[in-house]
Every structure is written in structure tokens, then in C-alpha cells.
């Protein structure tokens, strides 16, 4: 006790700085975690979180017996999985290529252009997509000479979602890789050049090995967020006709919870999503650990 008191007296200014962040985190991060229990209760605003009646697994059972349940789980997983599959390698290739560019100002210029889409709101991106994909006068149809209503085609939804995601964020994704590559000792390149190594050999034997730990770390982090498919973009691109592939859990949680005020039910569905996510994080972490013993996570 004496030690604690001493520490507080000595460092009170530092603890005071932390006061507001800690209070906000308790209220808006930890209290909601405590509130997750309404997934097992029949939440009534008048009774409060702990006062509402305990109903056990009722909401989970209702979700698993709802007609679109498996379609939503499948869509969420596939959209996330294909996104990761297609989007993840792009920044790596871009970074490896750009790093070899020797003309500094040209390189900076290209980077500026590649970063740009990241600074645009998803709302704007989806607005652009709606314009470009319009069957009449839309850029894509004009270029192809067709009149397809892409947003009404369930088979096109994932491609639209993923391609536009790559357009928006692949450029931004190179920053972390470029930072790693910038740390490479230039004497390695000098030596490689004297040995007559081509650009591709330098990438293959110097740059790529240097990137591997970063790639693994980024992969674990992305896999841990796999089921966290963003609500925003799917919601904005969803139409009645593409629901066969665009119906995902996040949108369902929003509709049930915020639009229909079914708080307990929506919390249960959201909790299920979180649990799958955490399970995937642990699974991927285990696999990666087995593959490479020397890379530790967090």
C-alpha cells in the first residue's frame, strides 16, 4: 500500500494526464463489453442491462433458424476471404516495384497518385461506382459498349466490391512495406550489382526476404479482422437484386438493431460474428507460429 501511495504521489501529474482517456475508455469501450450480456437477455430499456429477463440462447437459436442465416454467414466469409486473397498481395508487388525506381521525383509523384483514393470517403467511392456502373451512360458500359446493370447482378457484386477496394487502398497499403524496404543497407545492392545481379534477382534475394516478417505480421492482422467486413460499403452497394451475394452479417446487425430496435437479437448476431473472428485470429496465429518459430506476434 505504501508503495502504491508513493508512486501516485510522485507521478500524480502523469496519472492525471491519463484520467480523461481512461474514463472515456471505461465508459465507451468497457461498459459496452459488459453490455454484451443483453445477447442472453430480453433487453427492455426500462429494466436496464442487468434488470432485463434472462433468456439464455433464445436469440442465437432464432438467428440460426432464420431463413437467410447460412447465406449471410457464407457471404460474409466469402467476401472477406476473396478480399484478402486478391487485395493482400497487391501492395507487396507495388512496393517491390516502386522501391526499384531510381528516379526519386517520378517515384514520389507515382506514390502521390497511388495514395490519393485512400483520402476519399467510402460514400464518394460508392457514388462513383454507381455512376460508373450505371446501365445507361455509365463509364464501364460506355467503354464495353454494353448496357448491363452491374449492381443488379449478384455474380458481379464481389468483383465490384474487391476491385474498388484494391483501387482505393492498395496504394496506401504500400507505406508499411516501403518503410521496411527503405531500411535496407544500400551496400547490399552495391555488392549485388558488382556480382551482376539483375533487378529481378535483387528483388528476389534482397528485398523480398527483408519483407517477409512484415508480410507475416500484416497477414495475421488481416486474418484476425477477416469477418469484420465493413458495413458501409456493402450497405451502399446493396440492391434488392444482388442480395444473393451482398447479404452480410454486418448489414443485418444494423438493420435489426438500429432500424428495428431489436437490441438483444442484433447483439447476439454481432456477438456470434465476433466469436468467429476471434477463433480465426487464434487459428491463423497458431498456423503461422508453426510455420515460422522465430516470428512472435504482439
Amino acid at each position: 500500500m505504501v508503495k502504491v501511495k508513493e508512486a501516485v504521489v510522485k507521478n500524480w501529474q502523469l496519472y492525471l494526464m491519463l484520467a480523461i482517456p481512461v474514463i472515456l475508455t471505461i465508459i465507451f469501450k468497457y461498459l459496452p463489453m459488459y453490455g454484451i450480456q443483453i445477447a442472453f437477455r430480453d433487453y427492455k430499456a426500462s429494466a436496464g442491462i442487468t434488470g432485463s429477463q434472462w433468456v439464455g440462447m433464445k436469440w442465437f437459436e432464432r438467428f440460426f433458424s432464420s431463413p437467410n442465416c447460412w447465406r449471410m454467414i457464407k457471404n460474409t466469409f466469402l467476401l472477406a476471404f476473396y478480399s484478402l486473397l486478391w487485395s493482400f498481395p497487391v501492395p507487396i508487388f507495388l512496393a517491390l516495384a516502386l522501391h526499384q525506381l531510381r528516379f526519386q521525383r517520378f517515384k514520389t509523384g507515382v506514390q502521390t497518385i497511388l495514395y490519393a483514393p485512400h483520402f476519399i470517403s467510402i460514400m464518394i467511392v460508392c457514388g462513383m461506382l454507381r455512376i460508373f456502373l450505371s446501365p445507361t451512360g455509365g463509364l464501364i458500359n460506355l467503354l464495353l459498349g454494353t448496357q448491363v446493370d452491374f449492381l443488379s447482378e449478384a455474380s458481379a457484386f464481389r468483383t465490384i466490391y474487391i476491385a474498388s477496394g484494391i483501387w482505393q487502398d492498395a496504394g496506401w497499403g504500400i507505406i508499411v512495406y516501403m518503410a521496411t524496404l527503405a531500411g535496407i543497407d544500400s551496400s547490399q545492392y552495391e555488392a549485388a550489382k558488382i556480382d551482376g545481379a539483375s533487378m529481378f534477382q535483387r528483388i528476389r534475394f534482397i528485398d523480398f526476404p527483408e519483407l517477409v516478417p512484415t508480410i507475416v505480421l500484416m497477414l495475421i492482422m488481416s486474418a484476425g479482422n477477416l469477418m469484420n467486413i465493413g458495413f458501409e460499403k456493402v450497405w451502399l452497394l446493396q440492391t434488392d437484386l444482388n442480395k444473393a451475394t451482398s447479404d452480410v452479417i454486418a448489414v443485418y446487425v444494423y438493420q435489426q438493431g438500429i432500424e428495428h430496435a431489436k437490441y438483444s437479437y442484433a447483439t447476439a448476431v454481432g456477438l456470434f460474428n465476433t466469436i468467429v473472428n476471434v477463433a480465426l485470429l487464434i487459428l491463423v496465429n497458431k498456423i503461422v507460429k508453426r510455420l515460422s518459430d522465430d516470428i512472435s506476434f504482439v
Binding site: V4, A7, N11, L14, L18, P21, V22, T25, I27, F28, K29, Y30, L31, P32, M33, Y34, G35, I36, I38, Y43, I49, G224, V253, Y254, G257, I258, Y263, A266, T267, G270, L271, T274, V278, L281
Partner: peptide
């Protein structure tokens, strides 16, 4: 700073786990 490790953990934990949309909405 005494307790630094636990304070860091207190913040970092919220990166990996949260209450989700609806419980947060209800608190707000």
C-alpha cells in the same frame, strides 16, 4: 511509470475486442 504495463494493456485490449455496434449504441 508504475503500472505502465497494465495501463497499456487496458488500452490495447480494446483494439482486439469490443462491445459491438448495439451495446455501444445503447451506452451512448
Amino acid at each position: 511509470l508504475p503500472g505502465r504495463k497494465y495501463l497499456s494493456l487496458f488500452f490495447i485490449f480494446t483494439m482486439y475486442f469490443g462491445g459491438g455496434l448495439i451495446p455501444t449504441y445503447l451506452i451512448v
